[in-house]
Design a protein around this nucleic acid. Sequence first.
RNA 1: GGGCGGUUAGCUCAGCCGGUUAGAGCGCCUGCCUUACAAGCAGGAGGUCCACGGUUCGAUCCCGUGACCGCCCA
Length: 857
Amino acid sequence: MQLEKVYEPRRFEPHWAQWWVESGIYRAEWQPGKPVFSLVIPPPNVTGSLHMGHMLEHTEIDVTVRWHRMKGDVTLWLPGTDHAGIATEMVVSRQLQAKGIQYRRDLSREEFEKKVWEWKAESGGTIKRQMIQIGTSCDWSRERFTYDPGMSRAVREVFVTLYEKGVIYRGEYMVNWCPGCNTAISDLETVHEETAGHMWHIRYGPLVVATTRPETMLGDTAVAVNPRDERYAGLTSVTLPLVNREIPVVRDEIADPEFGSGAVKITPAHDPNDFEAGKRHNLPIIQVIGQDARMTDAAGKYAGLDRYEARKRIVEDLQALGVLERVEDYTVSLGKCQRCRTVVEPLVSKQWFVRTKPLAAKAIAAVDEKRIEIIPEVWVKTWNEWMHNIRDWCISRQLWWGHRIPVWYCDSCGYEMASRDDVATCPKCSGPLRQDPDVLDTWFSSGLWPFSTLGWPDQTEDLKHFYPTTLLITGFDILFFWVARMSMLGIEFMGEVPFRKVYIHGLVRDAEKQKMSKTKGNVIDPLVVTEEYGTDAVRMALLTGAAPGTDIVFSPERLDTSRAFSNKIWNAARFLFLNMERCSVDPWMAEDVNAYLPAANAAVEDRWIFSRLNECAREMNRAIDSCRYHEAAQSVWHFIYDDFCDWYIELKKMKFVEGCGLNDDWRNLLAVFESALRLLHPVMPFLTEELWHRLGGAEGKSISLLAYPQFDPARYDSEAEREIGLLQDVIRAARNLRADLGLDPKMPLEGRVSIAVDEVAVQRLAGLKITVGEVRKTGVVRSTAAFDLSIDVPAGQMEVQKKRVEKEREQLEKNIANCRRQLSDEVFLGKAPAKVIDSIRAKLAEYEAQLAKLNAL
RNA sequence: GGGCGGUUAGCUCAGCCGGUUAGAGCGCCUGCCUUACAAGCAGGAGGUCCACGGUUCGAUCCCGUGACCGCCCA
């Protein structure tokens, strides 16, 4: 029954991690009449391994999930991963490239897909191992992958249904084209970066236009001026330099008369605004830059040049022509591909889109009406801002890894059909059909995650019991990518929101508050830190900083502190076990520890610690329920460290009687310790499971399946709280006096106290032999409203006492003056609530009593 | 350009509905190896709650303006 001297989590964490999975105890089994808590994991991308952000997310989820399970809810945490189309395709293509393989040139689509599946097995395995190591209590029997057959069925069902409803359409529109990834990407996948560039002013005959992208002039099909701009009245056309093409001058609001010359060039093929203007004026579209970011044949003598090379040449040629009026430095906002950072080229291209406005309206309403609650609430504004301005969602990607678009074309008769099943021959002409080569945006499938994972489109039991999910915990970076899409698609297909609550967590930053990123080299690997400090300590370190709405600064100091806390608990347990041996106490557990209470005549510290335990239970339940994880961490920390270790055990120490056997004192102690472990379990699952078993928890059982301590107002023991509170104050006052006087800690002291206190406790914890009675004015005296304490000290120490008393007097006088000022203020008395006035009166009386005592010395 | 958030102890942050002497952890200072724990124990110092104005009997908290920092969108 001995515990090793040093807390070494490596000795037991792997064991429990493995057992939790193998025992299958976290499989959700629905039972009628029981409350349900269900949550789906934000599926990590199979692009590698988990980082600290995942660990924070998983820790917050796990705390909540373990708490719900212990509360007795039917609890489902559904795990899984995301095929992450473009991201994974990039990872694998880079690996192939390193071996000299250009996948689109050297491999068939099938061969490439096989390679990606191999990679998926590896990355998915790593992710699962990591999750197991950090103690996530999910239901592995329900693990899913966004590209597994069930998901693919759901994807087809959704696509075809929306296609049939006309919500999904195909058309030639301007999209963000990434020449690096060779695919169209959505607006959300492009990031804008301020970059130093130039503004070139070019003369087009009688007017001057300005542009940051002179190479696009080859595709100009008009110049626009503002309809109200009188400078250009009557001008109907100009000649495009270099190309010598006659282009019209159109009147359009796109031209701002205040900006530059008031005239703008219109290139419908290469700018989203120009594209719209082009449609308004029926302008032709001349594409001069291709998907490979090289100039097309339409660019004449510049054909084949890279777009930047072409820019250089065109500027030179314009200069030679004498039509380059001037060049100025200009900051341009460049759209870049989120994945590969290549500058995106706006191109007109035939793609698939989802009409989002009607879907978004329902999602907006769901949040408005609090059918989806977003926490912290500040994110609601951001949500509304984006949702109200939502644009159609480009869902086709020119990739190989992902759900292939379920649309077939007949080249013989031109028939097009969307189908849930693969089709080979045209139903119209029996000619051969060809499937659309493109795949769907990865978010299209993850957007179905809360219901597709539960078996939809089949009406499964799981779907019935676990949808809508109770809570979603995720990061703000995917609020639109994912949360918004899930909301829209969930409402559309299930007729019900996908989750009742969304908690948005912060970002994990390094000790210098920097974002963790691979390029900065400041990433912390969860596996490495959990190995070093123990998973429990890392979890605790993350949670203590996890205040809603703030980022988490993750520093080594924080880890040290958390590990010290783990060690503290470990040693408290070790101490109990040592004394159990000394006292011949066998392991014992209360039948129903949550109902256990010390007897009415039990030692006051027993009644007190159960009262504190009850308060801590109140805090824990409230904090976890409201996603205030930092408060939960702090509250259980304080209970265990301060109340339990520093006071309760210290008070109990002196009462262990050798060979006493299991008596009520021991029962109280063991019961409160077990309850403390239960309170802590969601936060530090490994340590608590280990200690619970050492305490006598049966093999094959788990603390994680036991009932969580609940708050009961009747358990507040005001008498015990008052009594121990006084004892603590007396002990602190004595320690304080001793330190003030600079006395040797071992020097025996005698003193008097005006109220009845536990003399043994004062002796043991303050080294003071105390007698109840009148204080001795010859000693040093400390007075509070509740008691007076005097300590006999050798002569010559009174100077310190005088100084201290003076300081105290000053403070009291200040407080008294302050109270009096308020109480003599008529307006204050007239307007402040009685409660506040009463409390000030009470305070004043207290201060005055204390001052009187001080003055009587 | 539009929007959002932040500014509280040396550091990282709490502080709910406006009302005690504004809190915690780390760090710092002093003293202790007190038979669980030096990854520990006891005690202590440290604050113009960014600035200015307003509302209020009363403002760290609400409102306005400004400064600085960060983020999102175009």
